[in-house]
């Protein structure tokens, strides 16, 4: 019989201990005998970045990743967005009664895998079990701390007129992959979620110092949402060019069919970078030289002091890129 999670696994007793040991310690590493109520960290001097995020994606498993990998990478990328080097993560699980051990082991396993690959440990966590119908299989909350070098300050308030806007690769892959999966569109061809950690890519930009003005991973609401936030926060207009946006052919075709726009689709492994005009070309080369940024493109520039995002279309016309409203896809991350 398939072994499933029962309410008793969340009771705090023997079954909870077994669950933690057999699933989580097995996946993340560490010694159960060292367990305590908090992990104790030694942080480098200087500023510390601290972030948290919850993951409720449906379906839990998708081409290119699963909810575990997503929860790990999402928090790593939030740290990377402020220029931090991730030090450690926490992961909390809310598990619905009836979830199989196999699914849970697989999810914890992919967290362990990306943790080992990046060298960023999961140092603390929690599990709760809710009765059937009160959740949907597995929800994960991850938190993370990271240290920021003294000369790094990534924030949209630093954006100045004429700055270049770079996206680190093709847009909309994650959102399209999940939507296509839900709509039953056959995507065995090529498009997988772009779910990936980006802290290495951002660290490669540290030498550019204050020439890098801002960075942000373009998750829910996609590139369109981040650019609108930047326009508001920097009080600048942003002009981007439709023909420079890196969009995979399958994503372009599929979104047209579904009535969606790649610019609003979630990404889980793409960063937007605002960079000074002087260093734009050099930064773009540097990003492209990194494995996570091979398809990076300079998509536009900032300009006047009217905060809005304008798209120059392939037709040479211009239109606003409005803040996405209403129909944003639910449970995309």
């Amino acid at each position: 019989m398939t072994e499933t999670i029962r309410l008793a696994h969340g009771s705090g007793g023997e079954m909870t201990s077994r669950l933690i040991k057999e699933i989580f310690y097995a996946a993340f590493g560490g010694d159960v005998r060292d367990a305590n109520d908090s992990a104790v960290l030694e942080l480098p001097r200087g500023r510390t970045a601290f972030t948290t995020d919850s993951y409720v994606i449906s379906p839990m498993f998708f081409p290119g990743g699963d909810i575990g990998k997503l929860a790990f990478c999402g928090t790593v990328n939030d740290l990377a967005s402020v220029g931090a080097r991730p030090i450690a993560l926490a992961a909390s699980f809310i598990i619905e009664e009836g979830t199989t051990f196999e699914d849970l082991r697989r999810i914890a396993g992919s967290i362990g895998e990306v943790s080992r690959a990046t060298g960023i440990p999961v140092v603390t966590g929690d599990t709760k079990v809710v009765d059937k119908g009160s959740g949907d299989k597995v929800f994960i909350t991850t938190s993370g701390v990271g240290s920021i070098p003294d000369d790094i300050d990534y924030h949209p308030r630093n954006i100045r007129p004429g700055d270049a806007i770079i996206v680190t690769g093709s847009i909309g892959d994650h959102g399209y992959c999940i939507t296509a999966l839900r709509e039953g569109i056959d995507i065995k061809s090529a498009v997988t979620s772009d779910c990936a950690p980006l802290h290495g890519l951002v660290e490669a930009l540290w030498p550019f110092g204050a020439h890098i003005r801002a960075a942000r991973d373009a998750t829910r609401g996609g590139v369109g949402m981040v650019l609108n936030e930047w326009a508001m926060q920097s009080s600048r207009g942003i002009l981007i060019h439709e023909e420079r946006l890196p969009v995979k052919d399958e994503v372009a075709g599929g979104t047209a069919l579904l009535g969606l726009e790649p610019i609003y689709l979630a990404n889980e492994g793409k960063m937007l970078i605002a960079v000074s005009p002087e260093k734009a070309a050099e930064v773009l080369d540097c990003i492209r030289a990194h494995p996570a940024g091979a398809d990076a493109a300079l998509i536009g520039n900032t300009g006047d002091d009217k905060p809005r995002v304008v798209l120059e279309t392939a037709w040479g016309t211009q239109r606003l890129v409005p803040v996405p409203r209403g129909e944003i896809l639910p449970r995309i991350c």
Binding site: G237, L239, T302, K306, V310, L320
Partner: peptide, 8 residues
């Protein structure tokens, strides 16, 4: 509200 060509 649309910008001058190429100069947002």
């Amino acid at each position: 509200n649309i910008v001058e060509r190429g100069r947002p």
